[in-house]
């Protein structure tokens, strides 16, 4: 429980003349669910991108399990333990649900893939759609397929960029419950970028607030609420970002 799984040191990303991320430092222990909060454009997605090795940092290091993700030799083996979900990316629409999961399962080298897919479909109520084209599904169903894809490799680290954005409350709650169970039962590490304060309060045991590419505060949810003398996380967030 105490081993550090993510370590970010002096991380900087500069695009042309502005800093998207400026001198980020944090460590995450295995089993932590960290909420990454901040206004639009504060550098949350850029941070996730650097953790995934999708964006090259201007300087600084991202260590996953003690290994630098920028090292090409480490990158592939580290990505086998990570997965990502975002409302801004989709799975191929013309492939069926089962075909999509087969493709990504093979890409991640999942063993007993058919059983794994069958379990995921059952747990995420996707069995009845397995032969339907992904593009024909509703946004709630598509979101569940994306979550199935993100869990197909049983990732040690799950990066979630606004996982319930644009979902109705019922589907949103279903996804949150599933993620909560997945993290707690299997001691998985989750980094959740979200604007939904209720979601963050429910899922996360730690929160990191960002503004203009920098960490402006971090701690447990209760410690931040107490520190800033507010009633809940939303009021605390508003106070911090408006200061």
């Amino acid at each position: 429980m105490n081993e550090t799984i993510i370590e970010v040191n002096n991380l900087v990303k500069k695009f042309k003349h502005s800093f998207a991320v400026n001198n980020l430092n944090f460590k995450l222990k295995k089993g932590t669910i960290l909420g990454l909060l901040g206004p639009n454009g504060c550098g949350k997605t850029t941070t996730l991108g650097m953790l995934l090795g999708l964006i090259k940092p201007t300087s600084g290091t991202v260590l996953i399990d003690g290994k630098d993700i920028e090292n090409e030799k480490n990158r592939t083996s580290l990505l086998e333990k990570i997965n990502f979900i975002s409302p801004y990316i989709e799975l191929p629409k013309k492939l069926t649900v089962r075909e999509n999961l087969m493709v990504y399962g093979r890409m991640y080298g999942v063993k007993n893939l058919k059983d794994k897919i069958s379990d995921l479909m059952q747990n995420l109520n996707l069995s009845e759609f397995k032969n339907r084209k992904t593009g024909e599904l509703s946004s709630g169903q598509k979101n569940r397929v994306s979550l199935a894809k993100a869990l197909v490799n049983d990732p040690e680290i799950l990066l979630l960029d606004e996982p319930t954005a644009s979902l109705d409350p019922d589907v949103g709650d279903y996804i949150r419950t599933y993620i909560e169970d997945f993290a707690k039962k299997k001691n998985k590490t989750i980094l959740l970028a979200s604007h939904n304060m209720n979601e963050v309060e429910r899922l996360c045991n730690e929160v990191m607030m960002m503004k203009k590419g920098e960490i402006i505060d971090k701690g447990t949810i209760n410690s931040l609420i107490d520190k800033h003398g507010r009633k809940n996380l939303e009021e605390t967030f508003l106070k911090i970002v408006r200061e």
Binding site: L54, T76, L79, Y88, I89, E90, P92, K94, Y108
Partner: peptide
């Protein structure tokens, strides 16, 4: 292009593909 049109592009690059 199919990967770009289907918005699947990022999924590929977060997968462990060289």
């Amino acid at each position: 292009l199919e990967e770009i049109w289907s918005r699947n592009f990022t999924n590929l690059f977060v997968a462990p593909l060289k």
